[in-house]
C-alpha cells in the first residue's frame, strides 16, 4: 500500500474538560464530554475512507480535527508524513489549501448575501491562486465540472434561488476549486432527498476519478459508506471499533456493533419474512462517563464478564481488517449467533 497522505494518530478530544471555578464549587459544572478517544485513521491518496457512526460517536469531531478546525486534546495529525497538529499562520493557510471540507447542511453552506460566483471565487482570492481577471473563467469551469449548467446563470444566482441538491453541488465546487489533495466530507447527502443524494454521490465519485482527490467520507449510513468508500471505519462513543476494506468489513464484520448496524439497515431487498430483531438491552450511548471495559458492553448482545472489566484489544483479522472485540475472530466466523 502507498504511504498515507493524511493520518490521524491516536487522537483524543475532550470538551468541557475545565469548567469554571464557580461552576465547580456549586456542583453545576457540565460533565466533560469525551468526543474522541483513541482515534487512528489513515487516508491513502486517491482513495476514500468512510467513517460510519451514530450521532455523537465522534465522527464529525474527527473530521474537524483532520482539517485543523479544532486541535486535539492529545494525539497528532500527519500530512504527507509531517506533523501538522500545531500549525499556525501561513503554514496553516497553506495546509488549508490542500485539505478542504464539505459540510452536512447545504441550505446553510453559502453566504446568502453573496452570489454563487462570489462564493466560489472566495477560496481562489484567499489563496491568490488565480489573477482577478481570470476568476470568472475559473468559476464557470468549476460550475461545469459539478454539472450546473448554464454555468453563467448559476454564477449570478443567489443561494436562496437554488435547491438543496444544487447548493450541495456548489459547496463541493467551492471545496474543490482550489484543487486540494484531501477533502473531508461530513455527511454531505444526509439532508438531501433520496433521488438527489445519488446524483451528488455519483458526482463526488466522478470528480475523484478525474482529479485523484482523497476523501474522508463521514456518514451514518453503512450502505452509503459501501457505495462511496474503499475502506470503512466504524466509530462508537469516540473510538474506532472496526476498520477494514469496505467489502471485507461488510461481508465479514468482526465486531458485534458492525453486525448490528448491518442488520438494522432497512433493506427492501430483505425477504418478505420479517427479519429477526435482537432486542438490545441499553439505550443510546452517552459520552460522559464511558463504561468500563469494552465501551459497547451495555448494549452488546454478546457481552461477557470479561467485557465489563477488560478493554478489548484491537484484533487483527488479516487483510487489513481490525476489530476491537474480545471475540472478534468468533464474530467474524459466526456472526452474532455464537453461543454465549
Amino acid at each position: 500500500m502507498t504511504d498515507p497522505i493524511l493520518t490521524l494518530d491516536t487522537l483524543r478530544m475532550v470538551y468541557n474538560a475545565d469548567p469554571g471555578i464557580l461552576a465547580r464549587l456549586t456542583g453545576r459544572a457540565d460533565p466533560p464530554v469525551i468526543a474522541a478517544d483513541d482515534v487512528t485513521l489513515h487516508l491513502h491518496p486517491g482513495k476514500t475512507l468512510a467513517v460510519v457512526g451514530e450521532s455523537g460517536s465522534g465522527k464529525t469531531t474527527a473530521g474537524r480535527i483532520a482539517t485543523l478546525q479544532e486541535r486535539p486534546t492529545s494525539g497528532r495529525v500527519l500530512f504527507e508524513g509531517k506533523d501538522v497538529t500545531d500549525l499556525t499562520g501561513t503554514a496553516l493557510k497553506a495546509f488549508r489549501a490542500k485539505v478542504q471540507m464539505i459540510f452536512q447542511n447545504p441550505y446553510d453552506a453559502l453566504n446568502p448575501r453573496l452570489t454563487i460566483g462570489q462564493s466560489l471565487a472566495e477560496p481562489l482570492t484567499l489563496h491568490g491562486l488565480v489573477p482577478k481577471s481570470e476568476l470568472r473563467t475559473a468559476v464557470l469551469e468549476m460550475l461545469e465540472a459539478v454539472e450546473l449548467r448554464p454555468a453563467a446563470q448559476f454564477a449570478d444566482a443567489f443561494p436562496s434561488e437554488l435547491s438543496g441538491g444544487q447548493l450541495q453541488r456548489i459547496a463541493i465546487a467551492r471545496a474543490l476549486i482550489i484543487k486540494p489533495r484531501v477533502v473531508i466530507a461530513d455527511e454531505p447527502v444526509s439532508m438531501l432527498d433520496v433521488s438527489i443524494r445519488s446524483g451528488v454521490m455519483n458526482l463526488m465519485r466522478g470528480l475523484q476519478r478525474n482529479t485523484g482527490v482523497t476523501y474522508l467520507y463521514i456518514t451514518h449510513d453503512l450502505s452509503v459508506a459501501r457505495y462511496m468508500a474503499d475502506r470503512i471505519a466504524v466509530m462508537y462513543l469516540g473510538a474506532v471499533l472496526e476498520e477494514g476494506p469496505a467489502e471485507a468489513l461488510i461481508s465479514g464484520a468482526g465486531h458485534p456493533y458492525t453486525r448490528l448496524l448491518i442488520q438494522a439497515a432497512p433493506d427492501h431487498r430483505a425477504s418478505e419474512v420479517k427479519r429477526q430483531r435482537i432486542r438490545l438491552p441499553g439505550d443510546a450511548a452517552s459520552q460522559s462517563g464511558l463504561p468500563t471495559g469494552c465501551r459497547f458492553h451495555p448494549r452488546c448482545p454478546l457481552a461477557q464478564d470479561v467485557c465489563r472489566t477488560k478493554v478489548p484489544p484491537r484484533v487483527d483479522l488479516g487483510t487489513g481488517q481490525t476489530a476491537a472485540c474480545h471475540f472478534a475472530e468468533e464474530v467474524r466466523q459466526d456472526g452474532l449467533a455464537i453461543p454465549a
Binding site: 435547491s163 444544487q166 432527498d193 433521488s195 445519488s198 453503512l222 448491518i262 433493506d267 427492501h268 431487498r269
Partner: peptide
Amino acid sequence: RTLIGALPSLTGPLEDLASLPATD
C-alpha cells in the same frame, strides 16, 4: 423506479445509482 434505484444496497451487488434532477 428512480427512488428504488437511488438507494445504495448494503448486501446486494454494487451498481451505479440512478439519480434525478431536483424536484421542481
